[in-house]
Simulated scan of single mutants.
Amino acid sequence: MITNMTLLTSPVLIGINIYFFTITVISFFFAHLKRLRYSALIIGALMLMVVISTRDLSYGDAGTYYKYYVAYPNPVDIKFEFLFDKLIALSKLLGLSPELFFFITTAIQFALLFFGFYRLTKALNLEKYFEFIIYLFISGFTFYFQTVETIREGLALSIVVLAVALYVEGKLKSSIICLFISFLFHSSTIILLPLIFLRRISNKKLLILTTILLITSSFIDKYIVLLAKILNLNYILLRLELYRDFGGGSKTVLLRVILIFVSVIAFYFLIEKILPHEIENINLLKFYIYMSTFLFIAVPFQELARRNLFRFSYFIPFFVAIIIEKQEFFPKKKIPILLIILVGTFLYHNIFLQSYHAMVGLLNW
């Protein structure tokens, strides 16, 4: 059985990554064969799903979910969100084994994630980059962490991708519904709900706010903790103290936060100044800037910042595709640039990520 620590070094998983790499390269030259392309993706997704769902479930977050499932409905020390709890209740009612339950949750997450990615590529007119975007994401650490360990959050963020696609399309009510459903799987996604009501605020004003938050982040944590004490928010206070001390293994959280800030500035000028009439891209930029405000607030709470960084990696591939798609930047050089990025991603996944300690302790995404 594959353990969480040996998952990325599994020859089977490396073979699946090579499969996705191959169909992504082929998609550049046969973009018109949609049915064949999507069939190949589904086959790859099924293989990946089987490998991930048959891993060792005895430790880590997955171990906690396993023990919770086995003990349910007997009293346990921890309670999960409503929909995740009801999913367990239904599975127990049907007499499903823990292994089959994890297979089903993996299948649900994959279905939601791939559909959300497809919907967002369609909203941004990036359908021909669908395989490219999928490959960039599944080759990074976040994908495996969210499917192997933080299953609840992985389910929630898969729904968030769909919510963002609906937001980009201007379907606010549907987006709110999706965000609310994601909240019932993992309560952390509640921070995204105010985004709906900031639609009329310019990206420039949001960008100014994120800059201020980054500059003041070195001491803002004291005021956040003080506010939580004044309002007697004991649960939030406990979590903040936990996140301040936990996650010390990563040495590059601040560096990655600065890189995110630089990318926010770059995407702002790309989309607002060069593509001002493409409302879908502007809406995606608004989400990206909005997410960065929470990242910068969380900088002093290293583990919280690290987890917020995971959310960014769901959407960075879309900005990469947007940049490549614009003719004025890379006239007649799209395919070579796409191949360079793909080869770099392939080497990153199949060489660097083979070291579990490098994966967890250094980059974490």
Score class of each variant (00 low, 15 high):
L231Y: 01
K204L: 07
S202D: 01
I191S: 00
Y223S: 12
L209Y: 13
T211S: 06
S182W: 08
L195R: 15
D221A: 15
I212C: 08
A228N: 05
S202H: 04
R200C: 04
L206F: 10
L226H: 06
L184G: 09
L213I: 14
D221W: 10
T189M: 01
T210W: 03
K229W: 07
S182Y: 04
I181M: 13
K205D: 08
R199Q: 12
V225W: 04
L213K: 03
T189P: 01
L209E: 05
L209C: 10
K229T: 13
S202G: 13
I224V: 14
L231V: 02
T216R: 00
I191N: 00
I190K: 04
L226N: 13
F219D: 12
S182H: 06
F183S: 05
K205V: 14
T216G: 00
R200P: 08
L214M: 07
S218H: 10
Y223N: 07
T210P: 08
I181G: 14
I196Y: 12
I208S: 06
L209Q: 06
S188Y: 02
R199A: 15
F197A: 15
I224A: 06
I215D: 05
I190M: 06
H186P: 10
I196V: 08
I212Y: 01
Y223P: 03
L206A: 09
I220Y: 01
T216A: 09
L227T: 00
I215T: 08
I196Q: 06
I190P: 02
R199N: 07
A228H: 03
L231C: 02
L209R: 09
I181E: 08
L227R: 01
I230Y: 13
N203E: 08
L213Q: 07
R199D: 02
L227Y: 00
R200K: 11
N203I: 07
F183H: 03
T211E: 01
L206N: 09
I208F: 06
L206G: 15
L184W: 07
T189E: 01
I191M: 08
